[in-house]
Write a protein that binds this DNA or RNA. Structure first.
Length: 1048
RNA sequence: GCGCGGUUAGCUCAGUGGUAGAGCACUACAUUGACACUGUAGGGGUCACAGGUUCGAACCCUGUAUCGCGCACCA
């Protein structure tokens, strides 16, 4: 800081210190250093997509993690913030596929084939994979980069495989043909969590089907047509749409005596896949038809016998909805599938995997995509005369989260996981009710809180979590993709002699390896399923030998989250082997981790699954606290997205304002549990704040050392020269009221910061820092300190001579003058004390500028090497002042109250200046009649703060006409105006003030007149009110007199 | 339908029963030796609405409106 620039310039500073931290290994966690005196603190990063770029969401998330990590280091903990990236199966594969298509290289990934395509994805990963990591470094993230992990690192992959095999062995993983969420765009199955419901405007189509008695005879349904109970209701037509008609649906008998049922559907294109029609058996309109058949209208060209489908009774049918008749399409609807299971219905799959209709859908629909097919189906029904009407209809449709197309329920064979440890996982998270229960039980007995529970912040997410855990469904873990962890299962169809030979060979090979080194490192299980021999293992040797013998690996890969759910321990070198883990110092030291910081949108995807995995594989929860951030929205409240183009590039913001500014601005606008409306102005505010901090330190440097005339010291520290002298001990005897006040404010700020961190309220923390540093330290303390630091000795001397003309302050004045050099040194010592503490309080939020100033101001030189001497990162976090400290420096609440009142007096005095239209830079004379004795120094400060030419002490000053006055608890302040004021404006102002006081007086008087109030209210509140009334009355009197004086 | 959260100054939000707050924006003044990325002063609010509890409600209770989110879904 030899050349102190007027404004803070972050760019060069930030790169310099980040390199410094890396070079000195400041982020590296060493399990060997962990001890009872030096506890471990760990966070694992929510791994961003390896090929992604930094978003504002990442900024929010990672700034919070960095705050926690940096704070923990300053608390003396051994900190591991473990970084890494996620392979992000679908996202990455889609991106690469698109790029290859765009370049014209391929039309489909099949053009390359699996192996070649994967090569290209790896290339892509190598090329783009590091970007987000570099961006995190720009943000200042203090991750232990030596431990950076990727979910497809070889050893990580082995963990995934091992976990799969273990769960498969246990029977928790199984293969089954089920209804799954199929994404026709990416052509893979998805988990329920990857489906998001969206409201869609569409139509509800009503079409009729003819009821027939038996399969044998086509045209005659006559007998049933005569069924007496059938009421021939007046048909709804598209013209008539009365509310009451909803209830009038029922079978119709036409002129020829044929009976028809009307069915409502949103998906007429699936009619060719219908294999039944269902009614509620309790529905009097339809129950009698159960057992009969209807003729399915589509495909039109199919022979009638093929289209006879039964009418079944199923309680699931809601007779309020639609017509009360449900078409059942077991192959294309989840609910219908279940009905189909109950009634053993045929399943007709009428679609290709890409969402186009196949031949079973009929000639007219074959080859069309689903939505086109819907239109054509409606046309066909119209032509057949089967369509009765079409109502506009809005319903919720599941969309593929990634591809943003409607998912297609589809019957397919997939791998599923029955979640482990659900009970433990569900119960470990503290619910809001628990806190009440625990508090009372603790009060009731001496039950030591036994098992530490996991806390969610904000806690309301615990309820969401609990609800999900209570309704948990098996997890579809297989994906029909190429990029990911391939399922570690090999099969061989035993249909020939070769098969038998192979079986023997593999058995032999297995036996050999088992003997050699099992159990331990690897997992293995084999089994026969029908004529299929299945090998599931993470042992590369067995995998290889199986393939040599003609075994074929399952083509699917695992859901990305099936690897991320292991993140908290797989990143710490977990091998999946419990006997080996005690020898893993990282896991020993850092698992379970302390905090997890993530978005509530992945509470099911990731958080819940990590908790279950933690219990299953580590027998302990993976983290103690989960902090859920809000979602970053734009100024208008819209979610930030690429397509809207409303997401600023954080790197641009860093370039423009600095990383510290971005961090501070983001934290300041991100209250716990609330969504954040992002506004660049917040970042601007952060920059301004950094500049303020910079200039406050610059001021400290400019006023030099304790002796105003002493030559500045220049000493080197990392090539940075200090140009002033850090002051040593504070002398309690020389402290002014302002000194004591700012020390008390610092103490308060430290306490507030501790509370804010304990409660994860980072916006509160920034608000505290902002208030303390800007409003209290800069606006008041620094200004007051100029009385000794800036004014020259001669000037002070002069003003003292002509200053207090009479009375009590003279004695103090002389003393003040005599000890001036000491007092100057002492003021500097207070400033250095406050600044060195403040920089530490700021450091988690503003790592770069605080490090720069820590060294530049020379504060690092006062500290031991490992406690701030090297870097502010390890400087001890400030502690609230204890009683000894306070009594040593004589800090009491009185100083606090006095200075608050003095500040109020100054504000009112400045207001008088304003009233008198006196320019801010013009020095004028004030007269002050203090209620109690004032030290000369304090009068000097008052003069400075009022920008007064002088403050005359007038014991019983009789104001002349045109003198403005204010009455405060510290005394009366007068400003002679010599007729400079606008009388009318002043009268108006005072009248308004008078009215306001009147209103307040009335309010308080009313309260105090109420016996209910005076009797029931706590004593201190009563006292407050009485005091308040007294003050108000005095004030009112004063304004009244002043006003009267103006009138004359 | 069920659950959760919000509604306080023009904007974004603090505020757990006792005088309604901050930042930004706005108005006026100021280029004074830290800082115009600044300073000083000022204007601005029926705390969504309606009831209730209380001596006293932005705050607690009940209901309503409205916005947002999550879960479950009726084809």
């Amino acid at each position: 800081m030899s050349e102190i620039s007027k404004a803070y310039e972050p760019q060069s500073v930030e790169d310099k210190w980040y390199r410094f931290w890396l070079d000195r290994k400041c982020f590296v966690a060493d399990p060997a250093r962990v001890s009872s005196k030096r506890p471990a603190y760990a966070i694992v990063i929510p791994p961003p997509n390896v090929t992604g770029v930094l978003t504002m969401g990442h900024v929010l998330n990672n700034t919070i993690q960095d705050l926690l990590a940096r704070k923990a280091r300053m608390d003396g903990k051994e900190v591991l913030w473990l970084p890494g990236t996620d392979h992000a199966g679908i996202a990455t594969q889609t991106v690469v596929e698109k790029a290859l298509k765009k370049s014209g290289e391929i039309r489909h990934r099949d053009d390359l084939g699996r192996e070649k395509f994967l090569e290209r994805v790896w290339q892509w990963k190598e090329k783009h994979g590091g970007i987000i990591i570099q961006q995190l470094k720009k943000l200042g993230a203090s991750c232990d980069w030596t431990r950076e992990r990727f979910t497809m690192d070889p050893d990580y992959s082995r963990c995934v495989q091992k976990v799969f095999v273990e769960l498969y062995k246990k029977g928790l993983i199984y293969r089954g043909k089920r209804m799954v969420n199929w994404c026709p765009a990416t052509q893979t199955a998805l988990s329920d969590e990857e489906v998001i419901m969206k409201e869609q405007k569409g139509s509800l189509y009503y079409f009729k089907v003819e009821v027939v008695d038996s399969r044998a005879h086509g045209s005659s349904g006559r007998e049933s047509a005569q069924t007496p109970a059938v009421e021939n209701q007046s048909r709804l037509t598209s013209a008539a749409t009365e509310e009451t008609e909803k209830k009038t649906f029922g079978p119709i008998t036409d002129a020829e005596g044929r009976i028809w049922l009307t069915i409502a559907t949103t998906r007429p294109e699936t009619i060719p896949g219908d294999t039944a029609v269902a009614v509620n058996p309790k529905d009097p309109r339809y129950a009698k038809f159960i057992g009969k058949h209807v003729i399915r209208p589509l495909p039109a060209e199919f022979p009638r016998e093929q289209k006879l489908i039964p009418i079944i009774g199923d309680e699931r049918v809601d007779f309020e909805f639609g017509t009360g008749v449900l078409k059942v399409t077991p192959a294309h609807d989840k609910a219908d599938f279940e009905i189909g299971q109950r009634h053993k219905l045929e399943q007709i799959d009428i679609m290709h995997p890409n969402g186009h209709m196949n031949a079973l859908a009929g000639a007219a629909l074959n080859g069309l995509d689903r939505f086109k097919a819907r239109k054509v189906a409606v046309e066909l029904l119209t032509e057949l005369g089967a369509l009765e009407k079409e109502d506009p209809y809005t319903n919720n449709v599941g969309f593929s989260e990634r591809a943003d197309v409607p998912i297609e329920p589809r019957l397919s064979e997939q791998w599923f996981l029955k979640y482990p440890c659900t009970e433990k996982a569900r119960n470990c998270v503290e619910q809001e009710d628990d806190a009440v229960g625990r508090a009372s039980s603790r009060a009731g007995s001496s039950v030591a809180s036994p098992h530490q529970k996991m806390q969610f912040h904000p806690q309301r997410w615990a309820k969401v979590y609990d609800h999900w855990m209570g309704n948990i469904q098996d997890w579809c873990i297989s994906r029909q993709l190429w990029w990911g962890h391939r399922i570690p299962v090999w099969t061989f169809k035993v249909s020939s002699d070769i098969g038998v030979v192979a079986m023997d060979a593999i058995k032999e090979s297995v036996a050999k390896i088992e003997k050699a080194n099992y159990p331990g490192k690897y997992s293995l299980t084999t089994k026969m399923q029908g004529d299929i021999f299945v090998v599931a293992t993470d042992d590369p040797e067995i995998q290889a030998s199986s393939e040599k013998l003609g075994f074929i690996q399952d083509p699917d890969v695992l859901d990305t989250w099936f690897s991320s759910w292991l993140w908290p321990f797989a990143t710490m070198g977990w091998t999946g082997d419990k006997t080996e883990d005690p020898n893993n110092p990282t896991l020993q030291a850092f698992y379970p981790t302390a905090d997890l910081v993530t978005g509530p949108d992945i509470i099911f995807f990731w958080v819940a699954r990590m908790i279950m995995a933690g219990y299953e594989f580590m027998n302990d929860l993976p983290f103690r606290n989960v902090y859920f951030t809000g979602i970053i929205r734009d100024k208008q409240g819209r979610k930030m997205s690429k397509s809207l183009g409303n997401s600023p590039d954080p790197l641009d913001l860093i370039g423009k304002y600095g990383a510290d500014a971005l961090r501070f601005g983001t934290m300041r606008s991100a209250p716990l549990g609330q969504d954040i409306l992002f506004d660049e102005q917040n970042v601007e505010l952060g920059r301004n704040f950094c500049n303020k901090l910079w200039n406050a330190c610059r001021f400290r440097q400019m006023v030099g050392g304790g002796d105003a005339s002493s030559p500045n010291r220049a000493s080197g520290d990392e090539g940075v020269a200090t140009t002033f002298e850090v002051q040593g001990e504070i002398d309690p005897k020389l402290l002014t009221s302002d000194d004591k006040w700012i020390l008390l404010k610092l103490d308060q700020a430290i306490r507030e910061m501790d509370t804010a961190f304990a409660e994860y309220k980072f916006s509160d923390a920034t608000a505290t820092l902002y208030r303390f540093f800007w409003s209290e330290y800069c606006d008041w303390y620094v200004e007051a300190s100029k009385a000794v630091l800036v004014k020259s000795v001669t000037e002070l001397n002069k003003s003292n001579e002509q200053g207090p003309t009479e009375g009590n302050a003279t004695h103090l004045t002389n003393r003040s003058f005599n000890e001036l050099p000491d007092r100057r040194a002492n003021a500097l010592a207070v400033i250095d004390f406050v600044l060195s503490h403040t920089l530490r309080l700021f450091h988690p939020f503003l790592p770069f500028i605080t490090e720069e100033l820590w060294h530049g101001m020379g504060y690092s030189q006062d500290m031991p090497e490992n406690q701030g001497g090297k870097t502010i990162m390890t400087a001890p976090w400030p502690k609230p002042f204890d009683d000894d400290f306070k009594s040593h420096y004589g800090l009491t609440g009185d100083d606090d109250k006095h200075i608050e009142a003095r500040n109020e007096l100054v504000s009112q005095g400045r207001n008088l200046r304003r009233t008198a239209n006196i320019a801010a830079n013009k020095k004028v004379k004030f007269i002050f009649n203090p209620a109690r004795e004032w030290a000369a120094h304090d009068i000097e400060v008052l003069k400075l703060l009022l920008n007064a030419e002088c403050v005359e002490l007038g014991a019983a000053h009789q104001p002349a006409k045109g003198t403005l006055t204010v009455r405060t608890e510290l005394g009366d302040l007068y400003l002679p105006t010599e007729g400079l004021i606008d009388l009318e404006a002043e009268k108006a102002r005072l009248t308004k003030e008078f009215q306001k006081i009147e209103a307040d007086v009335a309010k308080v008087e009313q309260k105090l007149a109420n016996p209910n109030f005076t009797q029931k209210v706590p004593a201190n509140v009563l006292e407050e009110h009485k005091q308040r009334l007294t003050d108000l009355l005095a004030k009112r009197e004063h304004v009244k007199i002043t006003l009267a004086a103006l009138q004359s």
